[in-house]
């Protein structure tokens, strides 16, 4: 169940003067069960990249393989791919349309050709997984709060039982509490349901706290691919790209400068606490 990008290029308006490259020579492989963070500045090609994962966009050059098969093949079952790779877009407003949250979540499974009963069962399971209160199930999706809408949107994709879940900026526009709730929900889905997760974000702290591996995009190219520790070593280069490193890593750098003997490759708060205690005791 791996996703492989092999020298993928994608350009918009290829035949006009307005030609712009959104992806240039992207190669990587995502294995089953990984928790990957994708970071990059606005316009770096992140969104274009994730849309290649479920075949909403096709490479202009190069190939994308899902489970060993080229998704650009003429006879590739694209609907099946979209069931396997669930993509949740940034704005839940773009997908909620039914009269009730429950009906809306049923939309995906019904499109998969499931019986009504089976679809409803899946919708219930998905709504429970995302932790929405039962009183909201029969409310209009437009009456929900921002965080609840986001959950409803995630449930709408989860109900299709994807093997890979791609979330495009799931925390944008949420307050800190809503953000933590969504991220721990995603973490739970990864740990308990064994779903492969690709998390697109430009918050370094979000990414550092949850993911095992980070892909960094800059100006349509993939510049780094590694564990948070490896990637955040390149603090200066990341800053030049308009990105940052986690705040706690900055704090560790400052402590080191002030004469404390702490490592500077720390990326999460828990780890930082451990190291600081070790250093002063």
């Amino acid at each position: 169940m791996s996703i492989i990008f092999n020298h993928v290029y994608h350009s918009y308006d290829a035949d006009t003067q307005l030609k712009t490259d959104a992806l240039s020579d992207i190669s990587f492989k995502i294995e089953d069960g990984e928790f990957v963070g994708l970071i990059g500045h606005t316009g770096s090609g992140k969104s274009t990249l994730v849309q290649h994962m479920n075949g909403l966009m096709k490479p202009t050059e190069g190939e994308v393989y899902f489970d060993g098969k080229d998704i650009s093949d003429k006879d590739y079952p694209i609907k099946e791919l979209r069931s396997n790779v669930g993509l949740v877009f940034q704005y839940p407003e773009h997908q909620l349309f039914e009269a009730t949250v429950f009906e809306d979540v049923c939309f995906g499974p019904l499109n998969q050709g499931l019986e009504k009963k089976e679809a409803e069962l899946r919708a219930f399971t998905a709504l429970r997984q995302v932790g929405l209160e039962e009183t909201t199930y029969y409310q209009s999706p437009f009456d929900l709060s921002g965080g609840q809408k986001r959950r409803a949107a995630i449930a709408g994709v989860l109900a299709m039982r994807p093997k890979v879940l791609v979330l495009d900026e799931p925390t944008a526009g949420l307050d800190p509490k809503g953000r933590d709730e969504i991220l721990s929900l995603v973490k739970k889905l990864h740990d308990e349901e064994k779903i492969t997760i690709v998390l697109v974000s430009h918050s370094m702290d979000d990414v550092a706290n949850y993911v095992d591996r980070i892909l960094v995009m800059n100006k349509s190219r993939l510049v780094y691919d590694g564990t948070p520790k490896e990637v955040f070593k390149h603090a200066e280069e990341l800053e030049q790209m308009g990105l940052a490193i986690p705040q706690v890593t900055y704090a560790m750098h400052a402590l080191k400068k002030a004469g404390f003997d702490v490592p500077t490759d720390v990326t999460t708060i828990d780890e930082a606490v451990d190291r600081i205690i070790k250093c002063i005791s």
């Binding site: 909403l56 877009f89 939309f107 995906g108 709408g156």
Partner: peptide
């Protein structure tokens, strides 16, 4: 642009 985005979001949920 918005139509394009909504279409994609629904296509990701299997809309045809």
């Amino acid at each position: 642009e918005e139509t394009d985005k909504i279409m994609k979001a629904q296509m990701a949920r299997g809309a045809d």
